[in-house]
Design a protein around this nucleic acid. Structure first.
Lengths: 363, 363
DNA sequence: ACTTAGCACTTAGGATAGCTGAGTGCTAAA
DNA sequence: TTTAGCACTCAGCTATCCTAAGTGCTAAGT
């Protein structure tokens, strides 16, 4: 049975009406809508056909129809008109992205919060491809005889540091030797490339400073591990309660608990550029079988990609959400500027900086 | 009307029974309880008296009694028996605190999450007294002609850094001059002490490097600001839904939204050492008038204190919660070890470190 | 062959009434 | 002062009815 133009129109109208009202849609309501010049009886026939084809469902005999996940799918793929964001919306989003930002993790966390805030759905944010990160530079700074700071800069231009306290004294020359050794042997290696072999080589070169070097290397590995550990940041789970499908506390609680786990990162397939929609049973996780997920990804640079997304009932305003997410993702891409450097507000506040030095800065 | 021993016993029994079951407690249920050798009629009389005194309330004529906030108060102050944590509980908590920890903010965040996890209530964590933090040391590291890293160490031994990119070239001597200037003029100052006067002095001393210095100073101020900005970390709001008093979605959502704001820090009075309980209307915030808050604070060192706490219905297991919180706070105190240094797992994982250097380390 | 009007049929969910049982307050006796 | 007994109250459960929205089908119209 082919999908006539009218039936497509009807299906679209039903989906949009249902998205708005959350109530099963009857034939009369559709008939009254502009653009459709036929009676409710005609609509009824078409609705019956659409149901037979699997695009609609009927909660019970005497109720209207609601879209099935197949119905939502065709809506998203073919029927949906792309939403244009209003100027206010884009302005609000732009403003929020002007925030003072520092570490990669904080940016990602913040991105999740903003997405949730702008969509009124629970949101999550994560970064992928972190296994490629290496350390490109070490600096050791002497603090006093028994302590020093190690500063390590990663290939993503993130700089991390750590203060070390030692039980024995160290000297400046010792530290310099160590520094040189680190920079020659332990740069440009991914976490996977740190091996016992590497340590053997280092042991020979370092001699008596071996203990020291293993401390620092262990820190370096922590930095990489930290960077690799792609935690998922979730935010705004409470927004679930705003939607009628989660008036059931039990249901809401289940989903919230699921979202609170932190190993959901693997669940969402990489969406390339642009947005992706996973409707109900298209989700692999059992817990998400009757929810939808909308994803967008953006370029962080240095082989890494960020992913932002929202979770909600299948009855979701896909048009609006995809528009918002993709706008957000675009801006995040711009924010990262292709060079893996995190932009930051340049002007010092409180004291004024001379013009000629106001500049992009990173941490 | 004085509070006889029996009435105290009855009150305590009612509170504990209600805490457990969340249902109004009747005279018969109490009479059956061990330790009370009298009939339900006697209990009824006493209950009526306790109600008149304001310790109990009656939801409606033919129901049992529930404790009023005054009732909870006297329970917490005088009647409650202090809960002893089981070995499993303390072990679980100890284990969780062994986590690899880095920055102060992360520790605090993590503390909040753990508290929520162990109590099954929404929890929050924050740090107080951050206005006293100063920068004790600067190091500038040249990366190339147009960029350098600034490393700043605070009085709380937190080390922060930032990568600067400049539009013009700089030289090593320039950087060293700058470095010296920073360390003489801009150390030991709280954020409030950074002033335009200070900048004037610096301008004279720095000469042509003034632009540069203002960039770095602005970073230093950001660090202090960041440190001062005592964000409240909240976690586990979803746990509200587990309690019968929040089966009402509207109510749960309201409270969750309130907890999601980030300016609740000021709401909770400093509790000195030990724990503090705020019952229902004792809370200043309108939104918390029918919830209780349990707080514990711990020493971070350097004039800072951390606060952890949970929020929940007034019907809360105060004995258990205060026990858990105070145990947690004690351990956090120990963790910070009085010297404002964040301990961290000493053993590198993957590569073994020699014994003689395994040591406390901080960032 | 498609569309439409009419009509009988279905059913969720709201309103109403009645019932039950837990719990109370009061009285009077121990 | 305590206790037994008893009449009274009332939330909340159950059963029943009713309504309104929506359907599917049939038959007539285009």
């Amino acid at each position: 049975m082919e999908l006539t133009a009218r039936r497509r129109k009807i299906l679209r109208a039903i989906v949009e009406h249902y998205i708005e009202t959350a109530e099963p849609v009857g034939s009369k309501a559709i008939a009254k809508l502009a653009g459709l010049e036929c009676s409710s009886a005609t609509i009824r026939n078409d609705m019956a056909a659409l149901e037979k084809m699997g695009y609609l469902e009927q909660p019970h005999t005497s109720a209207g129809r609601i879209p099935s996940s197949k119905g939502y799918r065709i809506y998203v793929n073919e029927l949906m008109e792309h939403h244009k964001l209003s100027i206010q919306e884009t302005e609000r989003m732009n403003e929020s992205l002007q925030l003072k930002m520092r570490e990669l993790d904080r940016v990602i966390d913040q991105a999740g919060k903003l997405v949730s805030q702008f969509t009124n759905y629970p949101a999550f944010a994560l970064a992928e491809g972190r296994e490629q990160v290496t350390i490109v530079r070490y600096d050791l700074l002497m603090v006093n005889q028994t302590s020093f700071i190690c500063v390590a800069m990663t290939s993503t231009n993130v700089v991390k540091n750590k203060l070390f306290h030692l039980p024995t004294d160290i000297t400046e020359p010792q530290l310099q030797l160590l520094n040189a050794l680190l920079n020659t042997s332990f740069t440009g290696k991914t976490l996977a490339q740190f091996s016992t072999d590497l340590m053997e080589t280092a042991r020979k070169a370092a001699g008596s400073s071996y203990g020291l070097i293993s401390l620092v290397v262990s820190f370096a590995m922590d930095v990489l591990q930290d960077s690799e550990h792609s935690a998922v940041h979730t935010a705004g789970a409470r927004h679930l309660l705003e939607h009628p499908e989660y008036q059931d506390v039990e249901k809401a609680h289940k989903l919230m608990s699921y979202l609170a786990q932190d190993d959901l990162g693997s669940l969402f397939p990489d969406s390339g550029d642009g947005t992706r929609v996973l409707i109900g049973p298209e989700n692999v996780a059992e817990e998400l079988k009757d929810t939808s997920v909308v994803l967008a990804s953006y370029d962080i640079g240095e082989g890494m990609r960020g992913v932002i997304g929202v979770v909600g009932p299948t009855r979701m305003d896909y048009a609006k959400i995809t528009a918002k997410l993709s706008y957000m993702a675009d801006n995040l891409s711009k924010l990262f500027g292709g060079s893996a450097q995190l932009p930051e507000r340049a002007q010092p506040k409180g004291l004024k900086a001379p013009e000629e030095h106001s500049q992009k800065e990173e941490e």
